[in-house]
Design a protein around this nucleic acid. Structure first.
Lengths: 178, 178
DNA sequence: GGCGGCATGTAAATGGTTACATGATTAC
DNA sequence: GTAATCATGTAACCATTTACATGCCGCC
């Protein structure tokens, strides 16, 4: 028992956590369904590429967090992955506090990264930079405003994304006239 | 000439862009100096690991954006990397609009990702989640408040990071009492 | 009965990470 | 003279990405 305790569990990647969560909410899914959910979600930053999702599910199965069930539909082979009890427990520790440090620290932001080099720009270039960023973010906000979200969780994530973008816009506006 | 034009330049990664920018501001640097600047910066999310910085500089040299100068100090071998003219031009196109799409879109946020699974939590768990996140972010904010930044760019990036964290805090507070 | 798109993958490249190895310099 | 730290890497791994391959299904 102590030996079993001893081996450290590797932390889940963000994608792996999301996959487990998806299985928890939706029940057993085909890999394709998981992919599609990432592809369609406007608030996720994953492409839902096959090369990410299939290996992730295989890793999760190796660790016993997920098990695959053969569920042919029509004459067609089809695997569904279902959450195991261990998988559900693992998801919960991923989801809940205490959080890993990088969950709470400042998220990376390519725009902030670039502003870090403002000292290399002339005022005119800075002005162009800010103007282009503001209109670009505005376009993104419009897209998010049109997005509906197909459940409560989705709407919450959308609201969070909008909130973050609006905050970024305000920050840029403050940058415009220093 | 048209043949030369024809081959597409691969985009710079964020790290590569930052390395070029560092060389532009600070002049020729040793790889170690570049690493240290990433390690010490509180507003960068890179570890400044040798395994990232050394290969990045080698890639940049292969592409002719940087050239290495042998500059021994004492009896010790030491390479300094200097920006080339092409490197400076490349940095400017990386830095300026028009931006790549992911520069302006919603940055990934592990906390938002987790909130996407609020529907799987009881109200008590949600409350614990929000409370832990708020105090954790508060701690991060205190650290940032103590950070000074050693130049104008640094201070600007720090201000941006603080702004983003405060916005996240407000969003969480709104989440607390729905 | 062919075609478009849904579904299921595989392969290769990429750009990061941690961990390790090791020589030179400096502080004490 | 020895321990700490500066400096310079290398190796292995890891989770993504894009691009490719391919079979089945429903529609016209």
């Amino acid at each position: 028992m102590s030996a079993k305790r001893a081996r450290r569990e590797r932390p889940l990647s963000e994608l792996e956590g999301c996959v487990l969560g998806h299985l928890l909410r939706r029940g057993p899914c085909t890999p394709y369904a998981v992919r599609r959910s990432f592809q369609l979600s406007p608030s996720s930053h994953w492409s839902g590429s096959a090369g990410a999702v299939y290996p992730a599910l295989e890793r999760l199965e190796e660790r016993g967090l997920v098990r695959s069930v053969h569920a042919p539909r029509g004459g067609r082979k089809a695997w569904r992955y279902a959450l195991t009890a261990r998988g559900r427990a693992r998801f919960n520790t991923w989801l809940e506090p205490p959080f890993a440090p990088d969950v709470l620290s400042v998220p990376p932001d390519p725009l902030r990264t670039r502003v870090h080099f403002f000292s290399t720009m002339t005022p005119a270039r800075r002005a162009r930079f800010v103007a282009a960023a503001v209109t670009g973010i505005g376009r993104h906000l419009e897209v998010l405003a049109r997005s509906r979200g197909h459940d409560e969780d989705d709407r919450r994530a959308l609201a969070a994304a909008r909130h973050a973008l609006r905050a970024r816009m305000r920050w840029l506006a403050g940058l415009r006239a220093p």
